[in-house]
Design a protein around this nucleic acid. Sequence first.
DNA 1: TTCTTTATATACTCTATAGTATGATATAAG
DNA 2: CTTATATCATACTATAGAGTATATAAAGAA
Lengths: 210, 210
Amino acid sequence: MTVLEKRRRLTREDWLAKALDVLAEEGIGAVCIEPVAKALGVTKGSFYWHFEDRDELVERLLEYWETEHTDRLGDLVAADSSDPSEQLLTLLELVTPSDENRYDASVRAWARYDPRAAAHLTRVDQKRLDYVRDLFLMMGFSKEQADLRSRWSYYYMIGEYSVLAIPPSDDQRLDFARRRHRMLTAPPVPGCSVPAAQPAAGAAIAKENA
Amino acid sequence: MTVLEKRRRLTREDWLAKALDVLAEEGIGAVCIEPVAKALGVTKGSFYWHFEDRDELVERLLEYWETEHTDRLGDLVAADSSDPSEQLLTLLELVTPSDENRYDASVRAWARYDPRAAAHLTRVDQKRLDYVRDLFLMMGFSKEQADLRSRWSYYYMIGEYSVLAIPPSDDQRLDFARRRHRMLTAPPVPGCSVPAAQPAAGAAIAKENA
DNA sequence: TTCTTTATATACTCTATAGTATGATATAAG
DNA sequence: CTTATATCATACTATAGAGTATATAAAGAA
């Protein structure tokens, strides 16, 4: 396998991997046959050997993403510790706006207008939410508390790579993760049925810094 | 102005409004001149009278969105009360995944691959984050606490219309909003520098229900 | 070697869209 | 009524991308 070796011929997975890259970089609208072929150094004659049509590429691309690029986290976090609270902390600290979930963001943008993408993303979101929810249940929280807190945890991660305002520094991001972990694992504030009777917890707090 | 009145001629804003609708429904990729013209009951001869080219439409569409469809909230919430804590509650209860922010979601998806859209969205996100941050500052929280809590508030809203897992019911959504408000306005948990020493708040909590 | 299958190239067609050029029509001002 | 201007229609060109048909080359089986 020297550097000068003649280019090996492609598999369906080569196409999927490259298409997923293009999806992440430029969105589903840029996943066109000829440009991707060019990126692979072949022509579209190759494409129509491996796939029926573009529709099949798109469908298999979603399967490829769902099966090959969405399951890393559970293993990674579970391996880190068996304590649900520590697992949550690892999760909050580890899931950064870049890396793994660069694909997620693109699928999410795509899913807004394509029901096929939405179907796959729904499954993935549900699976992850259930995973985090189970952590809170294992900590002893009620079903409803676990539901709220898991959503709150997960939504923050989505916000981190969706909101385009100036993001916090890496240090601050980590600090935020730990503080969120603190608040999320603390017992629920009692008396939540009353809509909004308390007139601001304000002034009594003003000393807290850092 | 009877129902049978002959169709009035269009303005640039008519085009922008319709284009924004198409953007919300089918994404920026569907904002094409001829289809939008058809939706307006005219041909593209009209378009090229009101706009230089598609690029100008796109640019003005972003301006139109930013100036005409992103400022409602501040007024609405501020009118409701002058107490920052109550304003926050109104915000958390009021901002639903549908309505106003159907445009937001589309611009957000668009912004991922178009720097122009990203520039506008960044300003809007920053403005809103600052607004919420100010609420927490007025409540007496430190700068850092206000930063964390405002992001946590805002990110949840983004997650609400981004995450495609089965959403909670309307009642539960409102209940969640009130519970978040409770937790977000409560004083910070002390001793946050220690990474994760406490071995789960678990069993002691398990009685809480509803 | 010869045959077969796999993998890619080349040369087409067809459609959607952007953009242009120019003609038609309506509305208001004179 | 006439004219000018604002608004839109029609008929074109050009390009990008999907899809098809067929030729070609490489690799393995006979």
